[in-house]
């Protein structure tokens, strides 16, 4: 065999091993976390862990419920804020804006996606938290502990979710064929009617996928939320209450993990929970997007 063929063969084997590694990485993570989480699962039934409100590690009581609820409050609020703003922006960018505006805005959206989460967190501490404490809460007559609240987390997270939803939605809107739009316009529909009845209807599965991916991005976000959300292990009763989302729990307790029995196992279970939720969301969204891509061609 000549040396060129040999090189080709060797490099191909190396690439194959890199690919197998990437393919297995996810399963290794899943199994690894599961392995570490199983000690606690064998002692306490899973529904006790998920639905018990009692979080006192010292007493060996590990109820995830406040953290799960906290996560959903913050993430839900972020998505509620981000979805209308992102969708309207995407529609404008893809349907109304000229090429020049689109070319200017795209790098800015990418930049928004590239800013590290601690920077968003710091911004939240400097701007959002004082704003809630000094302005918003007094006006609405709500009580808040220093402004660190579900609302602060939701606002900061929503900005971090903008680029995810906008970039996917503009891609999805691009796949709607011009013919369809022209048919609608030719029968006398206004541009907005065309968007409402044709473009959005045609692309609704894709938009749904974009929202799900945005939600999943927000769901696992740690540092920015951790810095502004207050971290009190109680179920929030209003958006001005502090919350304690799951990722923040993992980040805050890693130092003490080895100090109590089962503590490390519980934290790994929390990580496993995050991984599984994000997995479900991602697979769901990908399936929709792939299906859409196929139907276009």
């Amino acid at each position: 065999m000549n040396s060129r063929k040999l090189k080709d063969k060797i490099s191909s084997r190396l690439m194959l091993s890199a690919t197998v590694f990437a393919c297995l990485l996810f399963f290794v993570m899943l199994l690894g976390l599961f392995g570490k989480a199983s000690p606690i699962l064998s002692v306490v039934p899973i529904d006790d862990l998920l639905f018990s409100k009692d979080w006192s590690p010292m007493a060996g009581k590990f109820g995830f419920y406040p953290f799960i609820v906290g996560t959903f409050w913050v993430t839900g609020l972020a998505v509620i804020i981000a979805v209308p703003i992102s969708l309207l922006s995407s529609i404008y960018l893809s349907e109304y804006a000229g090429n020049r505006l689109r070319e200017t805005v795209k790098p800015l959206i990418d930049l928004l996606a590239g800013i590290p989460s601690v920077v968003y967190g710091l911004w939240g501490v400097l701007v959002v938290v004082p704003f809630i404490k000094n302005t918003l809460a007094p006006i609405l007559g709500a009580e808040t502990i220093g402004g660190y609240s579900v609302l602060a987390g939701g606002i900061v997270l929503s900005i971090m979710v903008f680029p995810v939803i906008i970039s996917i939605t503009t891609e999805v809107l691009k796949t709607v064929s011009t013919d369809l739009r022209e048919v609608s316009l030719s029968v006398g529909a206004t541009q907005w009617q065309t968007i409402k009845y044709v473009v959005l209807r045609k692309s609704s599965p894709g938009i749904f996928a974009a929202i799900v991916l945005g939600f999943s991005r927000a769901f696992g976000e740690t540092m920015a939320v951790l810095m502004v959300v207050g971290n009190v292990a109680k179920i929030p009763s209003s958006v001005f209450d502090p919350a304690y989302p799951m990722p923040a729990l993992i980040a805050n307790t890693y130092g003490e993990m080895m100090s109590l029995p089962f503590y490390d196992s519980v934290i790994m279970l929390a990580a496993l929970f995050l991984l599984l939720v994000v997995l479900i969301f991602n697979v769901l969204a990908r399936m929709v997007l792939v299906k859409m891509e196929r139907s276009v061609v």
Partner: peptide, 29 residues
């Protein structure tokens, strides 16, 4: 293998960094 790898990469792409952190910590332990 190709389609499995693409799926795995897609999921890994969406995996929160705190999960990587927890996994890495576990491996270090």
């Amino acid at each position: 293998l190709a389609s499995m790898t693409r799926l795995s990469l897609d999921i890994l792409w969406g995996t929160p960094s705190i999960v990587y952190g927890a996994f890495g910590f576990m491996v270090l332990m």
